[in-house]
Amino acid sequence: MEMIYATLKLDLGMILVCYAVLLLAFASNVVLSLYYNISMSKEKFDKKRLLLGIKKAVVLVVGTLLLVIAIDAATLLLADYVPDIGSQTHDIIKVVMIATTIGVAAWRYIKDAYNTFINILNGKPTENADALDNKE
């Protein structure tokens, strides 16, 4: 049982670092989008859009936290019964899960923040940033 707690503690420490990256990406996207939408596009502040973004971030955090706990518990408990499940399998599953959830979300926020940043620098509509994305 102590092994489960030690593994959970290590994994939760790693996932907190991932959440910090996600939070930075989310915050930069929010700040840049607020500036662009209010100052440049002359839109009104929409509290619903901000709350929806925060809600998505909270759901992602809770969901991935539960997934990490489930993966840790399952692989550690199955290790006693299935000899092929070891620490390498556990680590691979954990990394894939984190990369596909937190990594994809953080990358999307970073991409959106970058597009907004380019739009602010150019002082032009979002089509310019979309054109830069499709340039690849």
Results as ranks from 00 to 15, higher is better:
Arg49Cys: 00
Asp11Cys: 11
Asp46Ser: 13
Thr100Val: 06
Ser87Gly: 11
Leu77Phe: 13
Thr75Ala: 08
Lys94Ser: 10
Arg49Thr: 01
Arg49Asn: 02
Asp112Thr: 03
Ile110Cys: 13
Ala113Asp: 05
Ala99Gln: 06
Phe26Gly: 03
Asn128Gly: 05
Ala73Leu: 15
Leu65Thr: 10
Ile92Pro: 08
Ile120Cys: 08
Leu12Glu: 10
Pro125Arg: 14
Ser87Gln: 14
Glu127Thr: 09
Pro83Leu: 13
Pro125Tyr: 11
Lys42Glu: 01
Phe117Glu: 01
Thr7Ser: 12
Lys94Gln: 11
Val31Tyr: 12
Ser39Met: 12
Leu67Ile: 08
Asn37Ala: 07
Val21His: 07
Ser87Pro: 11
Leu65Ile: 02
Leu65Asn: 03
Leu52Pro: 00
Leu121Pro: 04
Ala20Ile: 04
Thr100Pro: 01
Leu10Gln: 04
Ile4Cys: 07
Lys48Glu: 00
Leu8Pro: 00
Tyr114Asp: 02
Thr89Gly: 13
Ala106Tyr: 10
Leu67Gln: 08
Gly103Ser: 04
Lys94Leu: 14
Lys47Pro: 06
Ile54Gly: 00
Ala105Thr: 02
Asp84Ser: 15
Val21Gly: 09
Val61Ala: 04
Tyr81Gln: 10
Pro83Ile: 14
Ile54Tyr: 02
Lys135His: 07
Asp11Ala: 11
Leu51Ser: 01
Met1Glu: 09
Leu77Arg: 05
Met14Ser: 06
Asp130Ala: 06
Asn29Asp: 15
Lys94Cys: 07
Ala74Ile: 13
Glu136Pro: 10
Met40Pro: 04
Ala99Tyr: 09
Val59Thr: 00
Val59Ser: 00
Trp107Arg: 04
Leu16Thr: 02
Val68Tyr: 08
Gly103Ala: 05
Asn128Lys: 12
Leu52His: 02
Ala99Asn: 04
Val104Thr: 06
Leu76Trp: 14
Ser28Leu: 14
Phe45Asp: 02
Asp133Met: 07
Leu121Ile: 05
His90Ser: 12
Asp80Cys: 09
Arg108Asn: 05
Tyr81Gly: 04
Asp112Trp: 08
Phe45His: 03
Thr101Glu: 03
Lys9Leu: 12
Val58His: 01
Leu121Glu: 06
His90Met: 11
Asp46Phe: 12
Lys135Glu: 10
Lys47Val: 08
Gly53Phe: 00
Leu34Pro: 02
Asp46Asn: 15
Leu23Val: 04
Val96Tyr: 14
Pro125Ser: 12
Leu67Thr: 06
Tyr81Ile: 10
Ile71Tyr: 05
Leu132Tyr: 15
Leu77Gly: 07
Ala57His: 01
Ile92Leu: 15
Lys42Asp: 01
Phe26Lys: 07
Leu76Ala: 08
Val59Cys: 00
Ile92Thr: 13
Val68Ile: 09
Val59Glu: 00
Leu77Ile: 11
Glu43Ser: 11
Ala99Gly: 08
Phe45Lys: 02
Met97Asn: 12
Ser87Val: 10
Lys111Arg: 14
Tyr109Ile: 00
Leu22Ala: 05
Asp80Tyr: 15
Glu43His: 13
Leu78Ser: 06
Tyr109Ser: 01
Ala27Trp: 13
Phe26His: 11
Pro83His: 14
Ala73Asn: 03
Tyr35Lys: 06
Ile4Phe: 08
Ala131Thr: 05
Asp46Ile: 10
Phe45Arg: 02
Leu10Ser: 05
Leu32Ser: 05
Ser28Met: 13
Leu34Tyr: 09
Ala79Gly: 08
Ser33Ala: 07
